[in-house]
Amino acid sequence: MPLSLDPGAVGIGLKHRHVDALLAEPRPVDFLELHAENYMGAGGPVRERLHAIAAAYPLSVHGVGMSLGGAERPDPVHLGRLVALVEELAPARVSEHLAWSRLDGDFYNDLLPVPLTEESLALVARNVDIVQQALGRRLLIENPSLYVRLEMNTLDEADFLAELVARTGCGLLLDINNAYISAHNLGRDLEAYLAALPGHAVGEFHLAGHSLDTAATPPLRIDDHGGPVCDDVWARYARLARQHPAVPTLIEWDTRVPSLDRWVAEAERARAHRAGIPYPAVGQ
């Protein structure tokens, strides 16, 4: 029986090293998010432990390899794997990215930028539609962290996402850290961007830490998911989470992965921020 998310649930990412502690009582977080591609093996201990996790926690399946933002249609073999995983786990959320990573049969392991044009919008909408049809459910699309400003853009990102929602019925995974990074790196007005997003479509928040590359000119914020959430991001989150109290929140931490206790402390900070309760910063 799939487990559902309570309103305002707070979760963290699933890492192999934390599985035993996560299965102990009491459960330290409300839900777990897994990177779909890490669990697409045919069998073995990793998948067996995933089934134990699925019996204990509501899950969010977060894909990183569907390349929805490219000109190519989704790879049917990979889509089949995602459909199988989603049918197996019956997760509370399924999400992917406004990005591309596959071209001419090769996979590039990053979330590459999508030119924001009418052509791209039509292709991304087609790709999202293909995936949603295959899954038989709504997909959440995550806003990207960007490091280049594309002069060929003819649409604002928020307008692009709003139109994608309108055309496909998809939802949004609003990564506030990504929005903050892109605003800094591209000289974009963060508040205007957040205000222009279709708030009704937001089905999940992502929060994460980032780093600053001072060797770049001008310095770039890098989405490395390698530390605590910064105060500027917490401030936006506190406001948005109170505007959308039912939306679940996921704290990502994918490099320099901390102890489970430290990660859970970051999740507790999220709870405090959404409740408007002061919460002291926690050390690394």
Binding site: Y108, D110, Y147, V148, M152, A216
Partner: peptide
Amino acid sequence: DLGQPDGLAVYRNNI
């Protein structure tokens, strides 16, 4: 039209 060199270097390094 591909973007700024420092930004492209981030993607290149990530991959």
